[in-house]
Simulated scan of single mutants.
Amino acid sequence: MNIVFDFGGVVFRWHPASFLARVWPHRVADLEQGATVAEQFFENYGGDWGAFDQGLIDADTVIQRIAARTGWPEAEVAQVLAAVPDELQLQSDTAALITELKQAGHRLFYLSNMPEPYADHLEQAHPLREWFEAGVFSGRVKHSKPRTEIFKIASERFGLAPEACAFLDDHPANIEAAHALGWQALLFTTAAQARQDLSALMR
């Protein structure tokens, strides 16, 4: 089987509400408030952050835009961006699943919405080339999920027809977009659930 992993929230930790509670304790008192602030900051990965995800603007520009839009000081916005690499911790249960799937002979790939500075960090911090045959980062191809273009780019880069790919992602909109293009897409909640869902596909 050809299995394509999303990164944030699947392979690497990404939980904006708790992340912002740690980085901005003076602004975020609890997870509920963290979720509200995350909506303002990341705009559901559209707007300013979406442009950063797609590599259309750099880190300095997204800091300026978020500060101008929200009124938060640029230094505080920059603090959040600087803290993202530490947030992207490898999730041990998913790492175990990756090892298990590779040992079973499955082909593994990745398709991630990831600004280029964080893509660089992940490549330097983890043996991505050992885990995956190939991958696509949004910041490098100037397109992001759930848009059609990035799925087409991934399919071409992997040399696979969409229906030959099992895609794991934690965002329903990305799953819906992948399904519409013929991918076998599975909503990721936990590595244990993903293992069960993939086993069902293999039957």
Rank of each mutant, 00 (worst) to 15 (best):
V136A: 03
N113Y: 05
A161Y: 13
H121I: 10
A185N: 03
E130C: 14
A180H: 08
P162V: 08
P115V: 05
I150G: 00
V136P: 00
Q79V: 12
F158I: 03
Q184A: 12
E176R: 12
V80G: 01
F137M: 02
V80P: 01
H106T: 05
L122N: 01
F109E: 01
L198P: 01
I98W: 02
A78Q: 08
A134R: 09
A154F: 01
L160W: 04
T190A: 09
L97K: 02
L101D: 04
Y110P: 02
N174F: 06
L160Y: 05
E163M: 08
E100Y: 10
F188D: 01
A177R: 00
N174A: 07
D86G: 13
L168H: 01
L187H: 09
Q91C: 11
A83I: 08
F167Q: 01
T190I: 09
D170Y: 04
H143R: 12
A96T: 14
D197C: 09
E100C: 11
A83G: 08
V141I: 13
A191E: 05
I153A: 05
Q196A: 15
R157H: 07
L181S: 01
R157L: 10
E87A: 10
L111P: 00
E87F: 07
V77R: 02
H106Y: 08
L81D: 07
G159A: 08
M114S: 07
S92V: 13
A134Y: 05
H179M: 07
R107S: 14
E156C: 11
T148D: 12
E149V: 06
E76Q: 09
Q196P: 09
E156T: 13
L186V: 11
E116V: 10
A180R: 10
K152S: 15
E163G: 08
T189Y: 07
E163S: 12
Y110E: 04
H126I: 08
L168K: 01
V77M: 06
P162F: 08
V84S: 02
P162M: 10
A95N: 10
E176A: 15
N113R: 04
D169W: 03
D93Q: 13
R129V: 11
A185V: 04
F109P: 00
H126Q: 12
G139L: 02
S199H: 12
E149P: 02
V84Y: 01
L97Q: 03
D197E: 13
Y110V: 04
N113A: 08
F158N: 00
A154S: 04
F188Y: 10
P115E: 06
L187G: 04
A173S: 15
D120G: 13
H179K: 11
I175A: 03
Y118V: 01
A173W: 14
G159C: 07
A78V: 06
E163H: 12
P127D: 09
R157M: 09
D169R: 04
R195F: 06
F137G: 00
L88R: 01
W131H: 09
A191P: 03
E176G: 09
T94Q: 06
F132P: 03
A191H: 04
Y118F: 12
L88A: 03
D86F: 12
K152Y: 12
E133G: 10
S155G: 07
A154P: 00
L108C: 11
Q184W: 07
I153M: 06
P85H: 06
D93E: 15
Q184N: 15
L111A: 05
A104L: 07
